[in-house]
């Protein structure tokens, strides 16, 4: 443990926290939109890591930020699709409860 590079590890831990919260949110929310929120949290946590690395490592100039941009774009796209899927699911099942999507139960 080195406390010299303070900032990086703090950011990393914050990113990890967001990430874990997103995982827990995905695992516990029964609402499909809730699961979607968890996905957003996960992506945000990863983004924080990217940007923190970009800032704290002089080798990287803008790589982290570019990647973060890409992630944001992809997140948006994915959110759109996910919402479309959820809406379809709602139309078919009249419910947004993910527990009722048991057709693939083996």
């Amino acid at each position: 443990m080195n406390f010299d590079a303070f900032g990086l590890q703090a950011f990393l831990m914050l990113g990890a926290l967001l990430f874990v919260c997103g995982i827990i949110c995905m695992a516990t929310k029964r609402n499909a939109i809730g699961v979607l929120m968890g996905v957003e949290l996960v992506l945000n946590g990863a983004n924080i890591n990217f940007v923190a690395f970009s800032y704290y490592n002089p080798t990287f100039r803008v790589e982290g930020q570019v990647f973060a941009l890409f992630v944001i774009v992809m997140a948006a796209a994915e959110a759109a699709i996910a919402l479309a899927i959820v809406l379809n699911y709602y139309n078919n099942h009249t419910s947004v409860d993910v527990d009722s999507a048991e057709e693939l139960k083996g």
């Binding site: 957003e40 945000n44 983004n47 973060a68």
Partner: peptide
């Protein structure tokens, strides 16, 4: 973290787009 473009993009795209969608 001196990433102003990314922050701006975050606010515009994420908050203003994705979150609105959600």
């Amino acid at each position: 973290l001196a990433s102003d473009f990314v922050g701006a993009a975050q606010l515009i795209v994420y908050v203003g787009g994705t979150l609105v969608l959600v």
